[in-house]
Write a protein that binds this DNA or RNA. Structure first.
Length: 195
DNA sequence: TAAGTGATTTGCT
DNA sequence: GCAAATCACTTAA
């Protein structure tokens, strides 16, 4: 079952937790890549200093976050890496969940085609936000993509048993007190979780 | 550990 | 308009 609008149309922190263990599906060129979401972070617009849309700052880039829940928010960071977020809450509320890491389930060959690395370790394919985007061939063409409707990128429901760990977010030193927020979630013991 | 990388935003004109 | 600063990361040592 594909996750529907009502799943995303909730508080970003809850959506972030509930997305763990769900299946992220990417289809392209007739190939299907299925991966399990193992790590997420919540970005809560108006109050969160780490969020691009802090204090409801609305620019061309953050526009998508103000839009409908279930849309993909993809942006380029550090000049070369894409990050995948899913917009949550309702229209006008800039909230999103960053997908930080996934575990490949199906379509390893396709993943390797898009992300060629020296490392033999499977973990290195998708254990980070930029890596997973390379692996799934996600770029800005998919920005604003409707994941509750489209077939190229969406999330399937699942019933994995898992233990959720709450932690501080990382790599957002500039966010001052908000970097202490426990808005990062990951599956305990999963090898694909980034440091 | 450190540096590369360029789109985006901001703060001047 | 243009220039400078910023940055939700990765890789190779």
């Amino acid at each position: 079952m594909k996750l529907k609008l009502d799943f995303y149309q909730r508080d970003g922190v809850n959506v972030a937790q509930d997305l763990l263990g769900k299946l992220l599906v990417r289809e392209l060129d007739g190939q299907k890549i299925i991966s399990k979401i193992v790590e997420t972070e919540a970005y809560i617009g108006p109050e969160d200093k780490a969020c691009h849309a802090y204090q409801n700052k609305r620019t061309k880039r953050t526009e998508v976050m103000f839009g409908r829940a279930g849309n993909a928010y993809i942006y380029l960071i550090y000049g070369m890496y894409n990050c995948l977020n899913i917009v949550t809450a309702s229209v006008g509320k800039p909230e999103a969940v960053l997908i930080r890491a996934v575990e490949p389930i199906e379509g390893l060959d396709t993943i390797r085609k898009y992300r060629q690395i020296k490392s033999k370790k499977v973990e290195d394919l998708t254990n980070g936000p930029g890596k997973l985007c390379q692996a799934l061939a996600i770029d800005k063409k998919l920005n604003g993509y409707d994941m509750t409707y489209g077939d190229k990128l969406y999330v399937l429901d699942s019933n994995y048993k898992l233990e959720v760990v709450k932690d501080k977010r990382i790599n957002i030193d500039y966010a001052e007190e908000y970097k202490e927020k426990l808005w990062r979630f990951y599956i305990k013991g999963n090898p694909f979780v980034s440091r």
